[in-house]
Amino acid sequence: MFMTGLRIPMALLMVAALVAVPRFVSAQEKPQAEVEAILKRAVEAAGGEEVVKKHRSTLSKGKFVIAGQGLEGSLEIRAAAPNRFLLLIDLPGVGRVENGFDGKIGWASDPINGPRLIQGKELEELKVQADYDSDLFKLDDYKEIKNQGVVDFEGEKCHKLEMTRKETGKTETRFFSVASGLLTGVITKSETPMGELDITVVVGNYKEFDGQKIATNVDTRIGPITQTFIIETVEFNVLKDSDFEVPSQIKALIRD
């Protein structure tokens, strides 16, 4: 949930460029090489492809907090290769929030809207989010990646990349720390039952679990509201197929 798409090591890429064009690197080649270097460094900073590939499922647990509203509850995130995902949030006095994808069917349930099937653009986005190896930043997954240079993001110097997915045509702006190489945040738009919303995600407080660095603090900002995931424990390769089973109330919607 890191280098299948980064097939050519940077050293070999630069050697190939020098052999093919001894005295000249075009304006198009240089930005592409810089993009690949930034993404490769992000993968290596998080532990490298070999470490990530030995993890085929991840169970994360912690807290979900909306500080501005005084809400705090339990958080559980299940993810498994190639593309299964389940988010569970339990808020005392509010109820359970659930969002899942079993590889084919997407669903959501919350105390306000009840259970529902996810369809259309929202389902397309969920499929992309459920890609277990998305943090490998596979170049083949993207139609275009634009390097916008170094900017300030949340008080840190970061490389700014505009990355457009092939499947959805959706562009996300991702920020990678100049100092550490790690992902620091994402600015995007997301399809919801309330329409398209602007979202800023800030990630940090990376900790190492079984050789892989994972952000244990994730702030999601939607307008004036900030929702925070605080990851406390991470286990790899413990999940089963049944941990992603579609709930009975969702199965009822499919039958209807």
Rank of each mutant, 00 (worst) to 15 (best):
W107G: 06
F85N: 15
F64T: 00
P193S: 06
G68I: 06
T200G: 01
F175A: 03
T58V: 15
E98Q: 08
I77Q: 02
M3I: 08
T4W: 13
G68A: 07
I187T: 03
K63I: 01
V21N: 13
M1P: 06
L136V: 03
D210W: 12
G181Q: 00
V234T: 05
K63Y: 05
K251F: 08
S242V: 06
E36W: 11
I145L: 03
P247E: 04
Y206T: 03
A179C: 08
D152P: 02
I222H: 00
T173D: 01
A33R: 13
F101V: 02
T192I: 07
K207F: 03
L123Y: 10
I8K: 15
E191K: 07
V246I: 15
K143N: 07
R7L: 14
S57G: 03
T4P: 02
G62R: 01
G68V: 02
D241T: 15
D141H: 08
I199K: 10
E144N: 10
K61C: 01
I250R: 09
T228F: 02
W107M: 06
K61W: 00
E44G: 02
E245L: 08
R56H: 11
A37D: 12
A215Q: 04
D152I: 12
E98F: 13
G95T: 03
N217L: 09
G103C: 09
G120R: 15
K240E: 15
K54Q: 13
D241A: 14
V21L: 05
R165Y: 14
Q129H: 02
G73M: 08
K240W: 06
I118M: 10
S57A: 04
T226I: 13
I89W: 05
E124Q: 15
G204N: 08
V52H: 14
S180R: 02
E191R: 11
L6H: 14
D140E: 14
E156L: 04
K207Q: 15
R165H: 06
P224N: 13
L88G: 00
E36G: 01
D141W: 04
L86H: 10
A33W: 11
Q32S: 10
Y142S: 03
A11F: 13
Y206C: 05
D133V: 08
R221W: 00
K157I: 01
M3V: 12
L182P: 00
F244T: 09
E125K: 07
V35D: 09
G185E: 08
Q69A: 12
V201T: 14
R255K: 13
S248W: 12
G223N: 06
M1W: 10
K121P: 11
H55N: 14
T220C: 00
K40N: 15
A80G: 06
T164C: 11
A79R: 14
V203W: 12
G181M: 10
K63G: 00
F85M: 12
G62A: 01
K240H: 09
R96W: 05
F24T: 13
D90A: 11
L86Q: 04
V128E: 13
E154Q: 08
Q119W: 04
E245A: 15
E122I: 04
F244R: 11
F101H: 05
F24V: 10
E29M: 12
D243C: 02
D131C: 02
P92N: 12
F2A: 14
Q32G: 05
I105M: 14
N237M: 07
K166S: 06
K170C: 07
L136P: 01
V238G: 11
K121M: 10
S248V: 15
P82C: 15
S248K: 15
N237F: 07
L71R: 07
L39H: 13
A45P: 07
D243E: 09
